[in-house]
Amino acid sequence: MDTDQIPIRADHRLGCLPPVPPQYAYQRVAEDMANRIKSGEFPPGSRLPSRAKLCEQYEVSSFVADRVFLILKMQGLTESLPGAGST
């Protein structure tokens, strides 16, 4: 075999990309929310969507929404204020 050639698998389909590793829902949502915060969609001091709204927008469970808020807080992008939710 020529060393410049890469063997093609029998199931190779022209134009298909290699499979992308699966991403957990909380990772996907946290990444999107972080991008939205960094882009200025949620300026400093503004309120983020409620847990219920986040669940509705991203079609995820409340467990996932809670984890997203925790990740954003751990990344230093948000803070929780008692009685005010996440800002």
Rank of each mutant, 00 (worst) to 15 (best):
M1C: 10
D2R: 14
D2W: 09
I6H: 07
I6R: 10
I6E: 06
P7S: 11
P7W: 09
P7C: 05
I8D: 01
I8E: 08
A10V: 07
A10E: 12
A10P: 05
D11N: 14
D11K: 04
D11T: 12
R13Q: 15
R13L: 13
L14H: 09
L14P: 00
G15N: 08
G15H: 04
G15Y: 06
C16I: 07
L17Y: 03
P18H: 08
V20M: 14
V20Q: 14
V20R: 15
V20D: 06
V20N: 09
P21W: 01
Q23T: 15
Q23D: 10
Q23E: 15
Y24R: 15
Y24K: 11
Y24T: 14
Q27L: 04
Q27M: 05
R28Y: 07
R28G: 04
R28E: 09
V29N: 02
A30E: 00
A30M: 01
E31D: 14
D32E: 14
D32I: 12
D32A: 11
A34P: 04
A34C: 01
N35Y: 03
N35C: 08
N35W: 00
R36Q: 14
I37C: 00
K38M: 09
K38P: 03
K38V: 06
S39A: 15
S39Q: 07
E41L: 15
F42E: 01
F42W: 05
F42Q: 03
P44S: 06
P44D: 01
G45M: 02
S46L: 03
R47C: 05
R47Y: 04
L48G: 11
P49I: 11
R51H: 06
R51N: 12
A52R: 14
K53D: 15
K53C: 08
K53E: 13
K53P: 04
K53S: 12
C55F: 05
C55I: 05
C55W: 04
E56L: 12
E56A: 09
E56P: 05
Q57H: 13
Y58L: 07
Y58C: 06
Y58I: 10
Y58F: 15
Y58G: 03
E59R: 13
E59H: 13
V60H: 01
S61C: 06
S62G: 11
S62Q: 07
S62R: 09
A65P: 05
A65G: 01
A65H: 02
D66P: 06
R67M: 07
R67H: 10
R67I: 06
V68S: 00
L70D: 13
L70M: 13
I71E: 10
L72K: 02
L72G: 04
M74W: 01
Q75P: 00
G76A: 03
T78Y: 02
T78N: 02
E79P: 03
E79D: 05
S80F: 12
S80V: 08
L81M: 06
L81C: 08
L81R: 14
P82A: 08
G83S: 03
A84Y: 04
G85F: 00
G85D: 03
S86V: 06
T87Y: 07
